[in-house]
Design a protein around this nucleic acid. Structure first.
Length: 351
DNA sequence: CGGCTCGCCACA
DNA sequence: TGTGGCGAGCCG
């Protein structure tokens, strides 16, 4: 801590060490501001080196309405994005159709990604903190569309496996009062035919945005505030299409393993004496299967249908996929059907 | 839920 | 006359 303080004094900024919590950062700031004179006590050699300041990585912790992240100015992606999920935070009326992907205004222009980097690149803009976790607030949902929270992601992976993983995380709030999640991109080395390792990842757009080879997600769950038992799961998912025949547990890794891959220490505030169980031993870690997922997506489409022709198409596609609608979907369908019939009848009169 | 593409229209 | 913003419509 002493060393960190001295470095902070040199740069005039303040540093959040990987092992230091937010509270500690604030404390460092206070000490620095309160003891400006302490700079005299600094090692004179270090003072000379830092006379005109030391390089800034811009990796400081950035706070938004409902997520927190560290940005990678070199790769134009986040390093990690943290959020907290609970039952209450998940229901709301904020809609993603009112949101737009845009550069994060708090990131220097030279280091930010732009929409043009992604458009036509063959890669989709994948949220790390999902929009679906932010229905409680228009503001917080809009902020998840900043490109500081986005990485180039395979379309099918984004809409499919990763989407189901995010749904699973939201579902955990039914069983656990508090769920903490850290997500981010990875560039993992490959072993060549000669046995040598190399790092190889694609870049897209004028800004050279890194296309991660993998994505990670760490999930920490607590049943209730008084329980001292925690459950934790770490997952590394290839940035490519992943079908329904692959269970989530296939991508589970030891937390320590992920920490070495990512160069990050996760949840350093968990006390050593606390008992931490494996999430997939406490819970099934089961994602939606193909029928459940198809049914869910159909439900969203039925709810969003604007014409009865579209409504019928959704239902026909469901039947063609050999998925039997459940009571919930049938009710949704009937309500929508009546609503659209009324609407289209009045539209007809107006012509 | 996760995304993209296209066309309209206000605007310079 | 070209362009950006935004909503409608589409797919997995």
């Amino acid at each position: 801590m002493r060393a960190a303080f001295k470095r902070a004094a040199f740069t005039g900024g303040f540093v959040c060490g990987a092992a230091a919590g937010a509270a500690t950062c604030v404390a460092v700031m206070r000490v620095y501001v309160g003891e400006r004179g302490a700079e005299e006590a600094v090692n004179p050699v270090h003072r000379d080196i830092g006379e005109y300041g030391l390089p800034l990585a811009g990796a400081e912790t950035r706070y938004y309405a409902n997520h927190i992240l560290s940005y990678d100015q070199s790769r134009r992606t986040p390093r990690w994005v943290a959020e907290h999920l609970s039952q209450e935070k998940l229901h709301g009326t904020a809609q993603r159709k009112h949101c737009k992907f845009k550069p994060d205004p708090s990131i220097p222009v030279a280091f930010t990604a732009h929409n043009e980097d992604y458009l036509g690149s063959g890669w989709s803009r994948g949220h790390m903190a999902p929009a679906g976790d932010n229905k409680a607030s228009e503001q917080s949902m809009a902020e998840t569309f900043y490109l500081s929270n986005i990485v180039p992601q395979n379309y099918e992976n984004n809409a499919g496996f990763w989407n189901r993983l995010e749904m699973y995380c939201r579902d955990l709030t039914k069983k656990f009062e508090d769920v903490w999640i850290v997500s981010g991109p990875l560039a993992l080395p490959e072993v060549g035919s000669d046995g040598r390792k190399s790092m190889c990842y694609r870049l897209i757009g004028k800004d050279n945005v890194m296309v991660p080879t993998h994505l990670f997600k760490v999930v920490l769950a607590r049943e209730n505030p008084s329980s001292d038992t925690l459950a934790i799961g770490a997952f590394v998912v290839p940035n490519q299409p992943i079908g329904f025949d692959h269970p989530l547990t296939e991508y589970q890794v030891r937390l320590s393993e992920l920490e070495r891959m990512a160069g990050l220490s996760f949840f350093p505030g968990v006390r050593p004496e606390q008992s931490v169980r494996s999430l997939c031993e406490v819970d099934a870690c089961r994602l939606m299967d193909v029928k459940e997922f198809t049914l869910y997506v159909a439900g969203r489409k039925v709810a969003g249908a604007r014409t009865s022709a579209r409504l019928e198409k959704v239902m026909t596609e469901l039947r063609d996929a050999a998925v039997t609608p459940d009571d919930y979907l049938l009710k949704l369908y009937q309500e929508k059907k009546e609503q659209l019939a009324l609407q289209e009848r009045s539209d007809g009169k107006r012509e």
